[in-house]
Structures are given as structure tokens and as C-alpha cells.
Design a protein around this nucleic acid. Structure first.
Lengths: 220, 220
DNA sequence: GTTGTATCGATATATTTATATCGATAAATA
DNA sequence: TATTTATCGATATAAATATATCGATACAAC
């Protein structure tokens, strides 16, 4: 039996990775409008980007466009989803059933984004046993063992800052390999563990700074 | 009376802006440990960055370090906060009191980050009148007029995708100049309006892609 | 068919961002 | 008081990212 070679795809920069979901947004909308092909130019205009950049990003997914027509929308959506690994669902555990954690548990759309949260954990005994979006909150002591047995690879951290590192440690002990970290602290993890930080304050800082600059300019 | 010249500060890149809040994290911790000075090297090691980059980022805040000692922590914290405009609170409105919106209303720490959410709005009549974290949910019809009268500059959008653009339009009509957008859609706004996107899916895509790459490498 | 044209994708250039080098300085030490 | 040393901050280099140029191609119009 011959090995099927994985389609040769150029390395993806982090910037490109962050733009890919935005392309999906637009593509889904166009698909709803029964449009079948779209040019890099149209996508770029919709998102305020440069069309060359769009073409380069799309090239990284391995999808090929057609001169004069552009890209087949269906093919592009599945190509991007494949690149992000959103065509598979990866099981995940969430720790910290506070308001943000509950909100995340409530989102049904993460399954479209490759994430399948199958259990949630809490330190706080009063919250254990609660049910949020069909998921029962379990005591944190069970985390590592269950993660290991169920071969869970993704952990979502939505606990307060002072518990975040110890939760990360437990996750890693349980074999978790990628952490989506909402706690406002830097996690120290071994090299083989991927951490993606999703602190709201980082994004808020950009906003408040730019607004201040913009208002300052106005009164000059 | 002579004008006091604003301390000359180099332009801040978006990357730098996103790192500044991380420095604050570390600095607060060190301050708690009664440490008074810190070198760029220590900060860099804590965050897994390069010390030169830390120095460059800090230079952009205008804070000056001392040879052999490093940076005065108190001065650095206030310098960074000033750069982010986190030493002032800007009033904000939030629209969309779903689970994410409620979680955001519940955070008390945003006041440390320059954001003061003073009112929240909803489309859904059943939610109007609800009180979350001392904030009463108001009907969306009041948004533009109140924003205008109260001179509110920041709007937070946590509504579903199909309402996001119209909410943005109302905000802009009410004079709002900066939008923190959690809805998974690109907002079309005039040039003078700042949009900071905080879609969870962007960050999730990076995670799922990297995890897939990492697991793939393992079985080669 | 032949010609015209929109669009791709490859290669080249420019810009931005990160990293390296090194002299200057202020504290610590001898 | 002289010497050593950690650290800064300025300048220089390297790497990553974005933008421009242009020939090739496949559809559309003639």
C-alpha cells in the first residue's frame, strides 16, 4: 500500500492563522447567498485587507484558485477548516466554572471550531454537581486521571489567576498537550505543551491606548 | 502659562501594546514580594521573551532604567498603565446580555484596565430590566441617545453575529469612537472609529492548528 | 476560433518586527 | 578611591511579514 502524501502546504505564520477564521466568516455569508466563486479581491475588500495577502494566506491552505473566476467557495471553506483542524473535533476539558467558564461551556459553536468540551471541573465544592449546557461540573481532583484515561488533549483554563498554574500542572500531568488560557497570567509549561493565551486585557489595552491617541489628536 | 510637553514617546506597535499588560502581571507579583527594582532580563525570563525586546517595549513607555539596578517597579507599572491609558477610566456601554456579555459585566477588574461599563442594553425584551452586577439592562432603543448625552466613547458588542453590524451603527450614531467586538463578524465602520476584535475563534484556530501539527509530528 | 480580460500565483521589493552588538553608566566591591 | 560588573539604551543586523510587479491561464465576448 502506498502512502498518500499529505498535500504540500507552506508553513503558516501566526498572523495568517488568525486571519483564516475571518475568511470563513465571509465565505459562509457568500455561500448563503448562493455564490459559488469568490476572488481574493472581494474577500480583501470585505475585510479591509490586501488582496495579495489574502491570496498568500489562501495559498497556505493548499487550495488552488482559477484565473478569471477566483476560488470555489465550498472548497475554500473546507480547505481552511482542514488547515485549522476544524474538520476534526478534539476533546477538551475546561477548568473553572465561573462566569467566563460557564459562558464558554454555553457556546455550542465551538464544535464548528474543532473543540469538543466533554467535561468541566471546579475547585469550589459548592459548584461541583452543577450542570451547565448538559455538562456536569466535577471536582478538580479527578482531572488528571480522567484526562489520561480519556486521552484528552486540550485544556481550557478559566480559573482565577492564583490557581491557573496549578491547574496547568494538573492538566499536563494528565497528558494534556494544548492549553487555552484565559487566566491573566503566564503559564510555565514544558516545551511540548502549546499555550494559547486569550486574556481579554491584552486586547483591551490596544483599544484603550488607540482611543486615547485618537482623542488626543482631535484636540491638538 | 507654558504648555507642559507630553513626554516624547516612540510609536507603539500593536505587538508591543499586547505585551505591555503581560509586563504588568509580572510587575504586580514582584511588587507584592516587596521587590523594588527589576531588570529586563528577569521580566524576559518570566515571560519567555527576549530581554532586548522587553527593553525596547519599556522604552516605548518613556520609563528610564538604571544601569546595574534595572527599572523601578512602581514607576514602571504606572508608566505602562499611562501608556495604555489605564490610569484613566473611560465610560463604556455594553450591548448583548447573553452569557458572554454577562460574564464581562461581572468582571470587576476592568476598572483596573481603563474600562468603566456604566450601562448595558438588550434587544430581547425578556432580558430588559434584569440586573447584572448592579447594572440594569436597558432596551436597545435608548442606546444612541444615551451614548450621545453621556459622552460615552467605548462600546462593547456581545450580540449574535446577525445583530452586530446594526449595533455598531447605533453606537457610532451615538458618538461612540471605539468598539470592542466579540461578535464573529467584521464590522464596517468609518475611519475615525477604532475596532478591536476579540473573537475567541481566532485564538482557538491557532491552538487547534498547532496541536494538530504537534501531534502529527509525533507519529512520523 | 481569436482576442480581450480578470484573476491567479510566482518572484521581487519594501516595511515592520525581532535579535545582536557594544559603548556608557551607576552601583557594588576591593 | 580605583576597579569590576550588571544593566541600560543606542545603533546595527537579521528575520518575518506585507506589498508590488508581472507573466501565465482560463473563461467570456466577439
Amino acid at each position: 500500500m502506498e502512502m498518500i502524501a499529505e498535500k504540500q502546504v507552506k508553513a503558516l505564520s501566526e498572523r495568517t492563522l488568525r486571519r483564516l477564521p475571518r475568511y470563513i466568516e465571509i465565505l459562509k455569508r457568500l455561500k448563503n447567498e448562493k455564490i459559488e466563486f469568490v476572488s481574493s479581491n472581494v474577500i480583501a475588500e470585505e475585510l479591509g485587507l490586501d488582496s495579495i495577502q489574502v491570496r498568500k494566506d489562501l495559498a497556505a491552505t493548499g487550495v488552488i484558485g482559477k484565473p478569471k473566476l477566483g476560488f470555489a467557495i465550498d472548497e475554500l471553506i473546507s480547505g481552511i477548516k482542514h488547515t485549522l483542524n476544524w474538520d476534526n473535533q478534539t476533546d477538551a476539558f475546561l477548568v473553572g466554572a465561573g462566569s467566563l467558564g460557564s459562558a464558554i461551556l454555553g457556546y455550542k459553536t465551538f464544535s464548528d471550531h474543532g473543540l469538543n468540551i466533554i467535561a468541566a471541573f471546579e475547585n469550589e465544592p459548592s459548584k461541583v454537581g452543577e450542570i451547565i449546557n448538559n455538562i456536569t461540573i466535577l471536582p478538580i481532583e479527578k482531572l488528571a486521571d480522567m484526562a489520561f484515561r480519556m486521552k484528552v488533549h486540550i485544556g481550557v483554563i478559566t480559573v482565577p489567576i492564583d490557581q491557573a498554574q496549578s491547574v496547568a500542572d494538573m492538566m499536563i500531568e494528565g497528558g494534556i498537550r494544548a492549553i487555552w488560557n484565559f487566566a491573566p497570567t503566564h503559564l510555565k509549561v514544558p516545551d511540548f505543551v502549546i499555550v494559547e493565551n486569550a486574556q481579554l486585557s491584552h486586547s483591551l489595552g490596544v483599544l484603550t491606548h488607540k482611543l486615547a491617541e485618537s482623542l488626543k489628536g482631535e484636540y491638538k
